[in-house]
Write a protein that binds this DNA or RNA. Structure first.
Lengths: 205, 205
DNA sequence: TCCCTAATGCGACGGAAGTTGCACTATGAC
DNA sequence: GTCATAGTGCAACTTCCGTCGCATTAGGGA
């Protein structure tokens, strides 16, 4: 959508967009968010910095665009046979993804950081997480079809309960053991879901 | 501890420390983390910027020192009579504290943001949250004494389960309704604790 | 193929962030 | 009281970030 309003979406513009976003991801993976700068992205991509400032506006918007791109991937939640183990796999995936230094984890971590400083990044993160939660609903819906959980279970809320403790340890309390936390959170969330604690939409909806 | 290694902890040095940290908090409350800069703190506090750079090193370390100071406050967890309502009050306090623009919430939010960029800030945040979790254990211990939850319940883990979804909505998924989420998370955590799901230390300890 | 102009490249500029050397002040030991 | 020096103030300096005006290039309609 970045170029939806453009009058010349083809050729060089498209090439520049690709080069810049790719360079952004590479810089993130290499140096992290703290050292992410427009000048470095410009140098790596071969696109002039003035162009980047004009088209995106700054580092945070650049990051938002990169995340938006990542949003269009083909990720699907795990399917292991039971709600609890699906949730556990999900949580462990989160813990592993953010802990590792691979590109995907770096982008996500950087965006969480950037969201504190830029409305554009915050919005990009919100949209990304919304989409992820939407896809994760599948996990709960399968459980519902299996009869594991009652009908009308708020799928997103179950997933939130399962993964929130992992994120909490990673970025809020900054503790070790996010991976182990996934198992317990998954169990608690699954049990609560079976007991019908997550039935119906939350009050504020 | 900032001045523990100093050879001249008294007089002007102490006054400067107080003035700088107070100015840091004031700047945070007024303009937020994104606009927090050493120069502005220097101007507000009346301490020269070179001094601040020499003593702390940068904005993030400044913030870490301010949080460390806040760590020594007299905060205690709510005591409402039951585990679930205590946890709910706790979660709502978190949601309200971070949403509001008061000074305390600003410092905590800013530190979470700074923790992504500076090891010093990350460590300060970790220590702060550790202390908060330690104080919150009281809530679960009271419930244990009342017989609400089985003996040997991992208090910190119960609290994490109760507040993590609130933090998740605030800073990760960036959704609305963090306050409402507190109620459901508190209920789920309390029920799980009663069922003994949080008995014993987690595996990775 | 031609041509208008959107998009980019380029270099210079203003300003803010952070550093450094030097002089001075005030602390705390004696 | 005196004195060595830790700590601070000051100002100049170096980078780096972001912006701007203008020249140049290339997309895409004719």
């Amino acid at each position: 959508m970045t170029r939806a309003t453009s009058r010349r979406p083809g050729g060089r513009t498209a090439r520049n967009t690709a080069a810049v976003l790719e360079a952004t991801l590479a810089e993130l993976g290499g140096s992290g968010y703290a050292d992410l700068t427009v000048e470095r992205v410009a140098a790596r991509s071969g696109v002039h910095k003035a162009t980047i400032y004009r088209r995106w506006g700054g580092v945070d918007e650049l990051l938002a665009a990169a995340l938006e791109q990542a949003d269009h991937d083909s990720w699907t939640p795990p399917d292991t046979g039971s709600l609890e183990s699906d949730l556990r796999a999900l949580g462990e995936e989160v813990a592993a993804g953010f802990s590792s230094d691979d590109e995907e984890g770096s982008v996500a971590t950087a965006t969480i950081a950037a969201a504190f400083q830029s409305p554009a990044a915050a919005e990009a993160l919100r949209a990304f997480m919304e989409e992820r939660l939407r896809r994760c609903a599948e996990v709960v819906e399968r459980a519902e079809r299996r009869g594991e959980v009652p009908e009308g279970t708020d799928a997103a809320e179950v997933v939130r309960a399962a993964v929130a403790p992992v994120y909490f340890r990673l970025f809020i309390s900054r503790e070790e053991g996010a991976g182990q936390a996934a198992a317990r959170a998954a169990r608690v969330a699954a049990e609560a879901a079976k007991a019908g604690e997550f039935r119906g939409s939350p009050p504020g909806r």
